[in-house]
Design a protein around this nucleic acid. Structure first.
Lengths: 146, 146
DNA sequence: TTTAAATAGGACCGGAACCGTACCATTTAG
DNA sequence: CTAAATGGTACGGTTCCGGTCCTATTTAAA
């Protein structure tokens, strides 16, 4: 059904939570799990991934935790999706060219590529900061696609 | 990775093929399988679904087959996705409100709904006719999102 | 120096979804 | 009557996904 995975969904939620609170810079996985209501092991797993991909910086040891590596307004939804789910692609042939035997005779491939880049571009205009704010958000997206 | 299912992918390909050829109105599943290189049982299954959903009209019996129920320019990619994969939704909470316990405190839900409707709208502007034509296509999409 | 609290990195597993096939019933032209 | 086609559905295999757990490493503080 053209879903993003739950991990990605949770990831965006967690980053938005980090962006939304004016609390201390560092959040532990436990804190975030408590505040969002998501299961701790899952939260932990996701934060590790996001840290490895450079969305978060991490501090190990006691009193450690995670913080946004950049300003929330500079992290796009598209970036987070790519970090969690791999390259953004609606069809197989975008990610793995050559796998499909119909590829050279396929008449829809180019158009899929175009749709794909358009959708991707739309998601690039939405920042984590905007995702967390209840209204007056998604200005760029609204403006761009009307 | 935000993929559409292979069935949906094939479905769009098959409809585009129907749109592209100026041949007879009626195509049998076997013909379409041969011409696209897709396995016959799969093609058959997809065509049945598309017929049930009203994208195709079918003629049973000998000399039977399938034909587009409308002009290819009036069938959108979004419609086909909906016919094959169910309602277009990037997150679970769009399709099944109430399933997520975080729903009432979730701060990103509304923004997901907006993104969702934007992407959906983009796919509504692309017709099957456009998907099949190699260039000068996707005019609406290009114009709308620049 | 010891201890507790954190992250880092995997391994693991049960279940669900997906891809593809096959079977049988029904329809229809010749 | 027969052959060719769709209609509907059931079934198996395989992969992917959501979720948990375990161990190693790091670090602040007692």
């Amino acid at each position: 059904m053209i879903r993003i995975s739950k991990e990605t969904d949770y990831g965006i939620l967690l980053l938005s939570h980090l962006a939304g609170t004016s609390k201390s810079l560092l959040f532990s996985a436990r804190e975030l799990a408590d505040e969002t209501g998501l299961p701790l092991p899952m939260v932990s797993k996701i934060l590790k991934t996001l840290a490895r991909r450079g969305m978060l910086i991490s501090q190990r040891g006691s009193k450690g935790g995670y913080a946004l590596s950049r300003s929330a307004s500079q992290i796009s939804v598209a970036e987070v999706i790519a970090a969690m789910d791999g390259p953004f692609a609606m069809t197989e042939c975008i990610v793995h060219p050559g796998d499909c035997r119909q590829e050279h005779t396929c008449r829809v491939r180019h158009n899929w590529a175009r749709i794909n880049s358009r959708v991707k571009r739309a998601l690039e205009t939405v920042s984590i900061a905007e995702m967390g704010s209840p209204r007056e958000s998604l200005v760029a997206l609204e403006a761009g696609m009307n």
